[in-house]
Every structure is written in C-alpha cells, then in structure tokens.
C-alpha cells in the first residue's frame, strides 16, 4: 500500500468510528432542545379570565394566593412577590370602558422561554403543561426572570418571615417564584386557591380546567367566546386566556 493510500483509508476509518461513537448522543441532544410536549397524553391545565366579571376593587384571588402559597409581602415594591397581581389597563377602544383591571399571572406558556433559558433545568414544563420551578435545583441566576416576556417571575431577595399555611412550603431567599397553578393542590384533585376564592364570592371570573377535555368548563368557555392571550405574537402560546381584553 502506498503512503497516500494508507493515509486516505485510515482517515475514512477514523471518521466512521467517530460517527458511530456519536450516534448515542443524538437523541440526548434532540431531547434537551425539545421543551414543547404538546402531544403528551393526559391533561393540559389552562385558565380563562373573564374580565367582564372581574370587579376592579376585588382582591379575593390575590389574598387567597398569598395565604395558600406563603407569598412574601415586605411592603416594598422592590422585594414584594406577586404570584398573581392586578394591573389597570388604559385603552382607547372600546370607548365605553377605557380602564379595565387585569389579573396577571404566569401564563404557563406551551413554549416557555423561562424553561429554555434555565441553565440547570430547574424551571421546566410538566407533562400537564404547568411551568414550575424546582427550588431544590435552582441556582438563582435569574435568567428566567429576564427571559419571561410577561414579567411573571419575582425573585426572593429577602427571607420571608410569614408562614400562614404550614402544610405548604414557603420560599427561602435566593430563588425566583411564579404561579404554578397550585400544582400541589392539582395533584390532590383540588382547584387552585385563586379559582376557589373566585367561586366562593360567586364572581366566577376565573375558569380553570383541562384544555384537552372538550367537556370541561374552560373548553366550553373557549369554544363559546372570543378569547385572547397576552401578546400572542411572541409565539409562546400562553395557556392563560382572557375574555374582553
């Protein structure tokens, strides 16, 4: 064999071996990119907020959330945590209602930018569509807060000293927080605290349920009304939808 021939053949052989060795890595790489599990079987939780029924001066859902999830309230807007908050929206159209009060919470996007940004996979999307942060794994880098287009994430800059609901955890300082649709309650078959509070005062502005089930309350509301998510042009596919936005 000539020297040139030998070098050629050994090069081909080496490249082939390298490709064969890299084969098992391929599915792993694909998995880490794919955070969109739209086709997973089972439930997909979603919420519809009817702004026509939501009273401007009502804070029942906010209070219920604070009590249920031990959310820190320091009395200083730099450090306050809001899993659900209300903002007043001023608009020109329609003219008869120039101001509306909109409850804002984590939108539980179908393509969550926070989960894509998280370097340690502490923020991730569960199979039922809930975007959740695992505080055990979180390193407190705050990338999720930067990437969230809805400003739904809040960082625990300070230690929280309130603990009204002892059966649930509170957040220690150094981790971000956002609404998780009360995942601990959903796992036990209960509804989120805000939805329950809204139903208790008979406002029924928050409608919660399974988007996969066509017979559920949310699916019926979505089918019968014109619903919109916030900034749908981002392509994040929010699962918190609004009537009358």
């Amino acid at each position: 064999m000539e020297r040139r021939e030998f070098l050629k053949k050994s090069g081909v052989l080496l490249a082939g071996t390298a490709c064969a060795c890299a084969l098992p890595l391929l599915p792993a790489a694909a998995k880490s990119i794919n955070v969109d599990s739209e086709n997973t079987a089972g439930k997909k939780w979603g919420m519809v907020i009817d702004l026509n029924k939501c009273a401007k001066d009502c804070n029942a859902c906010l209070d219920a959330c604070r009590k249920e999830n031990n959310v820190a309230m320091h009395g200083d807007k730099r450090w306050d945590i809001h899993l659900i908050r209300k903002v007043t929206l001023k608009r020109k159209h329609p003219a008869e209602s120039p101001e509306i009060s909109v409850p804002l919470l984590c939108n539980h996007c179908e393509r969550p930018p926070c989960a894509q940004a998280c370097p340690v996979k502490a923020t991730y999307k569960r199979e039922d569509g809930i975007v959740i942060v695992d505080h055990h794994r979180c390193i407190g880098c705050r990338y999720c807060m930067i990437s969230c287009p809805y400003n739904a994430r809040f960082f625990n800059y300070r230690e929280n000293h309130e603990w009204p609901n002892k059966d649930n955890t509170r957040s220690s300082h150094g981790v971000p927080e956002s609404c998780n649709f009360c995942a601990h309650r959903l796992d036990k078959g209960k509804k989120p605290a805000c939805v329950e509070a809204c139903e208790e005062i008979n406002a029924k502005a928050l409608i919660f349920g399974d988007l996969n089930d066509p017979g559920s309350d949310v699916s019926k509301v979505i089918a019968g009304n014109h619903v919109r998510g916030i900034r749908e042009d981002f392509g994040t596919k929010p699962k918190v939808l609004y009537i009358g936005l």
Binding site: Y124, D134, H184, L186, D187, K188
Partner: peptide, 17 residues
C-alpha cells in the same frame, strides 16, 4: 419522594409533613 412530587407530580402516601 421529593423528585416524585416535584418532577413527576406524584404526591404519594409519604410526605415530609
């Protein structure tokens, strides 16, 4: 138990509570 509850949503019969 933690991973089951956190990652898989399985809140079984054993909890820290």
């Amino acid at each position: 138990i933690r991973d089951d509850a956190m990652r898989r949503g399985k809140r079984g019969e054993i909890t820290l509570n």
